[in-house]
Design a protein around this nucleic acid. Structure first.
Lengths: 201, 201
DNA sequence: CCTACCGATCGGTAGG
DNA sequence: CCTACCGATCGGTAGG
């Protein structure tokens, strides 16, 4: 009889293993052992190994979408929205570090419809950032740059976080996002204070 | 009798397969089939599957080191050196896209001494960028920011390239690096022309 | 959730 | 570089 919460526990263990060893290097026996059951018993809870990967990846995609969409589609000046979106993005990574690692590193191992589903959500998510950047460039708050290029640079810079962020370290997600914003926005932001920005050196 | 250049061909094929499918999802039979020989015959050329991964990864590390080191340790003003280093880094990725993908995505699958060897070279490479950034911050050419944070942001932003760069596309490595520099340096560079930088919008 | 198991495939080897 | 093969392990299943 499946224990209540067992599925969540299995997903937790699988996230940890997939993030550390990679999806293909992790065996069903690794996951079942970490979950305290035998490998055959795992299939009382899941349908396949790829199901686990999909569920972890899909939750990651949903986290990003649901955190950033309300900010992009909400009211407020575009610079503040960009800062908030960056904080939200960094927070998703920092708060779900293992799942984020799997999301960024292992989603290519998904096949067929599952792969396509995640790809659609990734495209949707990138679209939110496009919208934000285009809005800012159109109204003159951001310098007019290649939107696609700028978006890829920002997302790449933030996504790198999963490779070095240490939750036990001294920086909170907000502090990390603030530093990102300081470096990146000062390059983006072309409003009046640019000429007079502080020099801390 | 091993054919001349066969080893290089095998490395080429393995790079392509590892970059598309991942190291663990690629089988010895995949590689041998792509190389036009049978799986047993592969071992006339290599000692193990992991040897292939190591050789691809190690060459990648050497490419980065040998391209960027002379720039960092050479003469010239630090802003120009940063631009040159960025161009060199982007060029390594763009010119060896499959190997770069393996280098960034699969090096964690290496074990023991091989893993440690690559880790040392990665540390050495990061050290070059630290040196460059610290030099620029010390002499006042760059804004005084958290060096480690700035370095990780820059490298993450550039390394994201392997996920979206299309050699058949319209941008040359130099153009890509220039755009990176435009966005990132304007955030870093705090010299006189900052206040009067051009606005292309 | 366990016992017992399966067909397939894996990386790699011996001998030529 | 091929033929023929091996022990180990893989994801997954049947029956309880």
């Amino acid at each position: 009889m499946p224990r209540v919460g067992r599925k969540e526990q299995i997903l937790e263990k699988a996230s940890g293993l997939f993030s550390r060893k990679g999806y293909h290097a992790t065996t069903i026996r690794d996951i079942s052992e970490a979950s305290g059951i035998l490998s055959g018993s795992l299939y009382a809870h899941i349908q396949s190994k790829e199901d686990l990967l999909f569920e972890i990846t899909d939750r990651g995609a949903e986290h990003f979408l649901q955190s950033v969409r309300p900010i992009v589609e909400g009211e407020g000046d575009v610079v503040t929205k960009l800062r908030k979106a960056m904080i939200a993005h960094v927070r998703v990574i920092a708060d779900h570090l293992e799942a984020a690692t799997v999301f960024f590193h292992e989603w290519r191992s998904l096949t067929n419809e599952r792969s396509a589903c995640i790809q659609r959500k990734r495209d949707k998510y990138e679209g939110l950032w496009s919208q934000l950047l285009e809005e800012g460039m159109r109204e003159g708050s951001f310098r007019s740059l290649d939107e696609k290029f700028t978006r890829l640079l920002i997302l790449s810079a933030m996504n790198g976080l999963y490779q070095w962020y240490q939750p036990a370290g001294e920086l909170t997600p907000e502090e990390v996002a603030e530093r990102f914003a300081t470096i990146l926005l000062t390059g983006l932001d072309y409003r009046e204070e640019v000429a007079g920005r502080e020099h801390s050196g």
